[in-house]
Structure formats: structure tokens, C-alpha cells
């Protein structure tokens, strides 16, 4: 089973929730943690894995054999991302623009283009206790993260609870992280910003047809707008974590809330139970 943790707004507590969920689940079964927030992975700060493997993640880019090229311009015409330019004497490649679709090398009438590689980041993996841990690190300045996110997700283990920590937002990287999950947790905070972005995230997950539920983090007891939102969308509110100074203090030192308040483990056990009951049920589109 794959459970994705997303939020829309950044800083609502995705990693807090996903790491605690992993730690609690690992007490009973096999868990694989996949940190797909590859632009700023940080779950390792809480889970402290022992990393044993590293692998470069690469994408396909065109390589032009200039001596075979007839400068016909077919490659630049088919490139939807303007990664190729036909000059009077050669073809120029702007690799960072390339999405690796392969149109140019498949359609070049002169057979003058072959696929090469471009590294976009690194994948690292290891163990933290009983949890299998994988994360991606996108190169600084690199714009294209989905291929790295998909590479991390390929490490999901059959028969394990795979927890995907998604990046914030609702665009391609988040879609790449959440796609294919059996369930998606949407973590929000009781602020107008949290609610606004929760709605965006919910719309995105609904379009993907993934069943989802809401977690309110840093609840101050005034969660009515979130409750109202969940009620009208028929969206289950699965867990509420109270605003707690000790938890914040622990988090600031990389300590998960369930280590600060062992009693909170009960919340996460209930959350796990609720997820496994709902995963696989189709999400009702509005």
C-alpha cells in the first residue's frame, strides 16, 4: 500500500505527520519511507537513517551527430519545449529545457540524433531501525524534479506500507509524488492560508481519483472553517494534533512529536487504522 502525505501549503506538518506515521507503523510491520520532496528533503533529519547507497538519477537528452545532420529542422519543429535550435551550420541543444520525450531522435530523418544522458540529482537509501528509507536530492538550479521523484517511488516495496512525503504545492512535482497512491493524507493548519491551499490540494488529488483525508496540525481548538470544508466535501477529518510548545521545541531539534509525547502514538495508530479502512475506496468527485 502507498500512502502519500501532501498539503498544498508548505510548512503545515507533512514531514511531522509522515515520519511519526512511519515510526508508529514500523512497530507492527514493514515500512518503506520515500521522501519525494526532492528540492528540500528533510525527513532524514527526524528519521536519522544510516545511508548505505547512492545513485545518480539521469534523464535522456538528445546528442546531435553534426556530420550526419542535414539541418532539415525536423527536430526543432517537433520539440514542444524549444530545446533545439537549427542554426545555418549546426543544431544547438539546450539540455535543461529538454523533457526527454524522445521525439527528436525518433523522428530525425537522417538518424543524426541519439539519446544521451543528463544527471538531475542523486537518490540515497538506507535504513533507520526497521524502516527502509529512500530520498532524492535534486541538483541546485535544476528545474525538472518529476523524473527524480519517480525514481524514488520506484523503490516502493511490495507488501510494505510505503509512505510518500510529497513536496508542497499542486504542480507537476506534487502530481508525480501523489500519483498511484492508494490514499492521500492532506495536512493542513487552522489558518486562512492552510485552508486556501487545502482546497487546491484537494482539487488536485480528487482529479487523480485518489481517496483522501485531512489532518489538522497545530490545532488551536478553532478549526471550524476546516471542519466546515471537510463536511461540505464529504472529506473525512482523520486526526487533529494540538498546538503544543513542547512538540515545537522537539521538532526544532529534530525530535518527532511521538517521542516528545509517547501518548500521541495512539493518534497515529488510529490514523493508520482509518487509512487502511479507506484506502482503495474511490474518491467521490464533486
Amino acid at each position: 500500500m502507498i500512502v502519500a502525505v501532501a498539503s498544498g501549503k508548505g510548512g503545515t506538518g507533512k514531514t511531522t505527520v509522515s515520519t511519526s506515521l512511519a515510526l508508529v507503523a514500523a512497530e507492527k510491520g514493514k515500512v518503506c519511507f520515500l521522501d519525494c520532496d526532492v528540492e528540500e528533503p528533510n525527513a532524514h533529519i527526524i528519521l536519522k537513517p544510516r545511508l548505505s547507497g547512492q545513485e545518480a538519477v539521469r534523464v535522456r537528452v538528445p546528442v546531435i551527430e553534426q556530420e550526419r545532420c542535414t539541418l532539415c529542422g525536423r527536430c526543432a519543429d517537433v520539440c514542444a519545449f524549444h530545446a533545439l535550435v537549427v542554426l545555418p551550420q549546426e543544431v544547438m541543444v539546450f539540455s535543461p529545457m529538454c523533457h526527454g520525450c524522445g521525439g527528436c531522435w525518433h523522428l530525425c530523418p537522417a538518424g543524426a540524433i541519439h539519446p544521451g544522458w543528463r544527471e538531475i540529482g542523486q537518490m540515497e537509501e538506507g535504513e533507520c531501525g526497521k524502516i527502509r528509507f529512500v530520498h532524492g536530492r535534486l541538483k541546485v538550479g535544476e528545474a525538472m524534479s518529476p523524473p527524480l521523484i519517480r525514481a524514488v517511488k520506484q523503490r516502493a516495496q511490495a507488501g510494505a506500507l510505503n509512505i510518500v512525503d510529497a513536496p508542497p504545492g499542486t504542480s507537476c512535482p506534487v502530481v508525480a509524488a501523489v500519483e498511484g497512491a492508494d490514499f492521500c493524507l492532506l495536512v493542513t493548519e487552522p489558518t486562512p492560508f492552510g485552508l486556501h491551499d487545502l482546497e487546491l490540494a484537494w482539487e488536485m488529488v480528487s482529479q487523480l481519483g485518489i481517496p483522501c483525508g485531512v489532518v489538522v496540525n497545530r490545532s488551536d481548538g478553532r478549526d471550524e472553517p476546516v471542519e466546515e470544508f471537510c463536511r461540505t466535501r464529504n472529506l473525512p477529518l482523520l486526526m487533529r494534533l494540538p498546538l503544543d510548545r513542547d512538540v515545537a521545541r522537539g521538532y526544532a531539534r529534530g525530535i518527532p512529536p511521538i517521542a516528545v509525547h509517547p501518548a500521541w502514538k495512539g493518534h497515529f495508530r488510529e490514523l493508520l487504522h482509518a487509512i487502511s479502512e479507506r484506502a482503495g475506496l474511490k474518491c467521490a468527485k464533486s
Binding site: 526543432a76 519545449f81 524549444h82 530545446a83 535550435v85 537549427v86 542554426l87 545555418p88 539546450f94 529545457m97
Partner: peptide
């Protein structure tokens, strides 16, 4: 209308 690479595309047009 381009999502990205507008300058590259315009430069190609100049050529």
C-alpha cells in the same frame, strides 16, 4: 504562448 523557451523560439524565427 510558450510555457518556456520563448526566447529560444523567437531566436529560431529570426534565423
Amino acid at each position: 504562448g510558450a510555457a518556456g523557451g520563448a526566447g529560444i523560439q523567437a531566436a529560431q524565427l529570426m534565423i
